[in-house]
């Protein structure tokens, strides 16, 4: 199966540097992410992983460097020049957050509907047709609900569709955030510590969900994670960051035995890495 997958990179990060005042959070970082691969970014706390995400998704403007995202049709987006919402809408990059950012006071279903905002906005002819209740919009809305239900089914939350998102248990909120990102129909999905706070059983479910997403949707996943069972279990490639620099890059087997990586983790998490 994996042999059939497209290996030309979807994301190409070159010489990315991000400074906050005097602090260099990312230092001349280059890596690529395969079109239908799961690429993991790992590294000790404060290594700059989330900053990389924030640069890719446009929340930060990098000090230097290039972040190119190429669609299947060859259209290339230079993400460092685009606004965050344009990156999400046009370049089709979706993300989740380290500290979950759901719309807590809205229901689970509403969360997934907001993710389809641009499609629905277009269908409602920028509100005018929707205001008049035209049938084209009704149809689009029905499709959006179907799409949401499909993803709710995937994350086993159909039963809770009409409950407020903030009422869900922690693990379910993590899954919902992934489903919400998937409802945008992305080509690149950036997950910031999706397994944080999950119990081992939930971690396994998450592994399966991510593999399913990769294989069924044929999209690229970029993953920040501390849980090595997740990282080693599902990643195709791993980039290891320390103090904003890339210290290792390769397959899980390669990274696992790379002395740089072991040194960076200072033996504290040796058992987990090695």
């Amino acid at each position: 199966m994996s042999a059939a997958r497209d290996k030309t990179p979807i994301l190409n990060v070159q010489h990315l540097t991000m400074q906050f005042g005097g602090l260099v959070a990312i230092n001349d970082l280059s890596f690529t992410a395969g079109r239908t691969d799961i690429t993991a970014l790992i590294g000790p706390n404060g290594a700059g992983k989330t900053t990389v995400f924030n640069c890719i998704t446009g929340f930060y403007k990098p000090t230097e460097g290039m972040i190119a995202l190429t669609h299947d049709d060859g259209h290339r987006f230079l993400l460092e020049r685009l606004d965050d919402h344009v990156i999400a809408r046009s370049a089709r990059v979706a993300r989740t957050f380290q500290n979950i950012r759901l719309f807590g006071g809205m229901t689970v279903l509403e969360n997934l509907m907001v993710a389809q905002h641009n499609t629905l906005m277009h269908a409602s002819r920028f509100t005018f047709a929707g205001l008049l209740g035209l049938s084209g919009f009704k149809k689009a809305e029905k499709e959006a609900v179907e799409r949401a239900t499909h993803w709710l089914d995937k994350i086993q939350l159909v039963e809770r569709a009409d409950d407020p998102a903030a009422d869900l248990p922690y693990g379910a909120q993590r899954r919902l955030e992934i489903a919400r990102a998937m409802c945008m129909n992305p080509l690149l999905l950036c997950l910031d510590e999706p397994a944080a706070g999950l119990n081992p059983k939930e971690s396994d479910q998450l592994n399966q969900l991510l593999l399913d997403i990769r294989d069924e949707e044929q999209i690229a996943i970029l993953l920040i994670e501390h849980d090595m069972s997740v990282v080693m279990g599902i990643s195709d490639h791993i980039a290891v960051l320390d103090y904003g620099r890339k210290i290792s890059y390769g397959t899980p087997e390669f990274v696992r035995s790379d002395p740089h990586v072991i040194a960076a983790y200072l033996g504290v998490e040796d058992e987990e890495v090695a």
């Binding site: 950012r101 719309f103 905002h117 641009n118």
Partner: peptide, 11 residues
């Protein structure tokens, strides 16, 4: 509810 999440969803 959350402006940053909105931006990440292309709004």
């Amino acid at each position: 509810e959350d402006e940053i999440a909105c931006r990440s969803l292309g709004i």
